[in-house]
């Protein structure tokens, strides 16, 4: 672990990604305690304030402190995205591994179906699923997880097949190792690294997708301080106070940039031969 961290710090992407994601995780964990105000406390006299010493990032249409809302919203946005990605990865990894393991016609049938599902754009699939399940954060999470599963299945399968062709797996088969040992000790450690990389990059997409769903009114519901929802609500007041819409937009972008950089840094750091 320490060695991987050291390798990550050596590349500019890895170092920057670590810093950004580290700050975001800090905001997720202790953000609410550091928030200067109650994120839902309305103050009719303090509406549409620009950034000032009192309100660092200004206030919204109800006079709520934007910084406090962003800090509280970090959990709603980032944690949801991470869970959705992890869930999608899990489902995808299981399907992909089974497909690679079965091989032959079953593999082909599964992969053709996965391809077919992937021809529904992920935002559209998520929209349809949310529509089916009803508007809420949890349903948006499930929708994103399901929308990610086919892509992760494809990645897992191709990685698993590449590893399967390696002679160390052949050697284990020739040695008479059990299927459990081959999958668990020989293949898995070599499959996990690329999947972790792919997953990290997908967290960035999940954050964007989740915020987009909330923006379209299908994810988090008011008065939540989810960032996409904050942008959607601020749109009407864009002319009055551009700050209201700018800050949550930048927050979403920053999280996505952070995870993208972290993923690329991890890719380099996890390569055992570099």
């Amino acid at each position: 672990m320490i060695e991987i961290l050291k390798r990550m710090l050596r590349s500019p992407q890895g170092a920057l990604g670590l810093v950004i994601v580290g700050l975001i995780l800090l905001a997720v964990i202790v953000g609410p305690w550091f928030a200067p105000y109650d994120p839902e406390k309305m103050a009719p006299l303090m509406r549409y304030k620009p950034p000032s010493a009192q309100f660092w990032l200004g206030t919204d249409q109800y006079g709520r402190d934007i910084l406090s809302r962003l800090l509280h919203g970090a959990r709603a946005t980032v944690v949801m995205a991470v869970i959705a990605t992890a869930l999608g990865t899990l489902v995808g990894a299981v399907v992909g591994t089974i497909s690679a393991f079965l091989g032959g016609r079953s593999d082909e049938a599964i992969m053709r179906t996965v391809d077919a599902i992937m021809s529904i754009p992920s935002l559209l699939l998520a929209l349809l699923i949310v529509n089916l399940l009803g508007k809420s954060s949890v349903n948006a999470l499930l929708a994103i997880a399901l929308a990610f599963a086919p892509g992760m299945a494809r990645v897992t399968r191709s990685v698993a097949l590449a590893v399967r062709k390696q002679d160390y797996v052949n050697a284990a088969i020739a040695r008479g190792e059990s299927a459990a040992y081959i999958v668990g000790r020989e293949m898995l450690p070599n499959v996990v690294a690329p999947i972790v990389v792919e997953m990290t990059i997908r967290v960035a997409f999940a954050v964007m997708l989740f915020a987009t769903l909330s923006f379209l009114g299908l994810g988090a519901q008011p008065p939540a301080s989810e960032w996409g929802l904050m942008v959607a609500e601020a749109r009407r007041f864009m002319h009055l106070s551009p700050w209201m819409i700018l800050w949550p937009s930048l927050a979403v972008a920053l999280v996505a940039i952070g995870f993208n950089l972290l993923g690329d840094g991890l890719r380099d750091a996890l390569n055992p031969r570099s």
Partner: peptide, 21 residues
């Protein structure tokens, strides 16, 4: 990096703010 990290609704907000508003 910045480009792939901006969801459309954020980009839209920014271009409208700058170019239209």
């Amino acid at each position: 990096y910045v480009g792939v990290s901006l969801p459309e609704f954020v980009t839209a907000t920014l271009v409208v703010l700058v170019l239209a508003d």
